[in-house]
Simulated scan of single mutants.
Amino acid sequence: MRKLLLVSNSTLHGSGYLDHCQQHIKDFFGKDVKRVLFVPYALHDRDNYAKTARNKFNSLGYELDSIHEASDPVEAVRKAQGIFIGGGNTFRLLKCLYDNKVVAEIRKRVLEDGIPYMGSSAGTNVATISINTTNDMPIVCPPTFSAIGLVPFNINPHYLDTDPNSRHMGETREQRLVQYHEEPDTPCVLGLREGGLLLVEANKATLLGTTKARLFVRGKPTVEYDTGSDLSFLLKDGH
């Protein structure tokens, strides 16, 4: 029953907040959803973050409630018609999700009740099996790296291609993901470039947006996928 919209980035260069994917958002939530529950835990200034998200969703025809304003976060999830988890620091986000005891409840609402879930950047990271492939610094320590687990693989939002002209001598994004796969039993990683998004409807996954995605599978060469590609095979076991 799962219905997911997993976005690489909230803001694309040259446009405003969620402008680049606003039509996808309207198509995703549709007309049945009237109110969306926003989770601003990834940023410190939750009030301002909720204001930004509320203004955007209001312009698209949706009311938006922020979970940090609710007296009971778990009850807020139980009553939600749809959920949107925004970007920021993934470690802070996951820790707050566990601290507020909503990880299992979000999983239940999405996988069992079928309410739509949208994530952007860090919100996309926590929708996957773990946050092991986030780009963020661990500014806080969540109790585990295991995430909500709405899909059985990892995503690397904001995936950056190697710049052959760069003099930077640190690891490239590709090298870091290869290092991840040097560990045993690691699932595949979808490198989602900015402007890209993954739509999951039950057991079907489709790459949308304006950029290709790169798939990393342990022990195999990377593969590029064009917009519109069927990536449903990722939903089987994540490997």
Rank of each mutant, 00 (worst) to 15 (best):
D99Y: 09
G191P: 05
G170W: 04
S71C: 08
L93N: 03
T128Q: 00
T144A: 07
G191L: 07
E112N: 15
G82Q: 06
C141S: 12
L192G: 02
R193Y: 07
P184F: 03
G114M: 09
P73F: 08
C141P: 08
M118S: 11
P164I: 15
P143E: 08
I148S: 10
A147S: 15
P152E: 09
N100Y: 09
I106M: 15
Q81I: 05
K101N: 13
V110H: 02
N100S: 12
E75Y: 00
L190P: 03
G170A: 09
L199Q: 10
P73S: 11
I129W: 00
D136Q: 07
T90H: 09
R193S: 12
L111M: 13
E194R: 08
S121P: 05
L94R: 01
H181M: 11
L197S: 09
D72G: 06
V102I: 15
E105I: 13
E171W: 13
T128H: 02
G88K: 05
S146H: 10
P143N: 02
T144F: 04
L97G: 09
H168P: 00
T172S: 13
E105T: 15
V74H: 04
N154F: 03
R78T: 00
C96Y: 03
K95G: 02
L190I: 11
K95P: 00
D185Q: 13
G82S: 15
I115F: 02
D163T: 09
D113K: 10
D113P: 00
T134I: 02
P116D: 06
